[in-house]
């Protein structure tokens, strides 16, 4: 198996030589098609990790390789979704979803001529996340959960090889969150995309991921890597098994310890 993302001994410091060291000696690998979750105490550099992998920040030392190439500028094979859906209010949901295609180099020149084909693809994605027929609505006419679904569509429209999710469900209520876990699970199964999910929610991490990375307090590094043993496809019921709860419990203990050390 080849690694899609490989991070080797990376240091990232903000604001010059005397600035804050956000991550230090960070090393992790994510295989193609894998679903990885990153958990850790707050302020451990999870967002920095996002920015390193997408090429928004270039590390001072160490190497980040994504898709076989060292990252020295933003990598367009990545889709991103944040906790804040950041839909543009002057565009309809469908136009919002098509936005990345107007940016990414290999699509932007084809967009006008092949508009029909792209719109169809966007509508397929909308259907997968359960938003069929909502494309013509404006984002502010949708509920928070629906906006986050549309946000996922936007992150996936340009067929990225890697999907980076930064606490995408943090602001949603428990039931909507569980619904969207299933949406993500099915997307991952159907599209074969590699996903890195940054989250505070340990149950979310264990339910969704193949591998869970536990980060230390600042400066962040990987303390431990867990394989999640549960068979796919996973049902929501898996969360009521004792093995599931034991794993969540163990992760909780590790993060609590990491907090105390800091």
């Amino acid at each position: 198996m080849s690694h899609l993302v490989s991070i080797d001994n990376v240091d990232m410091r903000y604001g010059g030589a005397s600035g804050t060291l956000a991550v230090s000696g960070l090393t992790m690998r994510v295989d193609k098609g894998e679903f990885a979750a990153v958990v850790g105490p707050s302020g451990c550099g999870k967002s920095t990790l996002m920015k390193l992998v997408t090429g928004l920040h270039i590390p001072q030392t160490g190497v980040v390789i994504v898709g076989g190439q060292q990252v020295t500028k933003p990598v367009s094979i990545v889709g991103m979704a944040f906790q804040n859906p950041t839909m543009l209010p002057w565009r309809t949901t469908l136009e919002n979803i098509l936005l990345p295609l107007e940016i990414v180099e290999r699509h932007r020149h084809r967009l006008r001529a092949h508009k029909r084909e792209y719109v169809e693809k966007a509508e397929q994605l909308l259907e997968i996340v359960g938003l069929r027929g909502f494309g013509s609505k404006f984002p502010w006419q949708l509920s928070g959960g629906m906006q986050q679904r549309a946000n996922l569509c936007r992150a996936l429209i340009h067929e990225p090889e890697l999907l980076m999710l930064d606490e995408p469900f943090g602001a949603l209520d428990a039931f909507t969150r569980e619904e969207l876990w299933c949406v993500i699970r099915d997307l991952h199964a159907a599209q074969g995309v590699t996903i890195i999910l940054v989250t505070h929610d340990l149950r979310e991490a264990v339910f969704l991921a193949d591998t869970i990375f536990v980060m230390s307090a600042r400066p962040g590094r990987i303390l431990k890597e867990h394989r999640v043993p549960f068979e796919r496809p996973r049902d929501l019921d898996v969360m009521y098994q004792s093995a599931f709860n034991d794993m969540v419990h163990a992760l909780h203990g590790e993060i609590a310890k990491a907090r105390v050390v800091a």
Binding site: K51, P74, V78, F82, T86, L88, W90, E102, R154
Partner: peptide
């Protein structure tokens, strides 16, 4: 919003793209 800018920059957007797609309509 910095998140909007991050999403677009990660896709390879230039300053001009961000201005045209987000800044000016906004």
């Amino acid at each position: 919003e910095p998140e909007t800018e991050d999403v677009l920059r990660a896709l390879g957007a230039k300053k001009m793209d961000i201005m045209l797609k987000v800044g000016i309509p906004r």
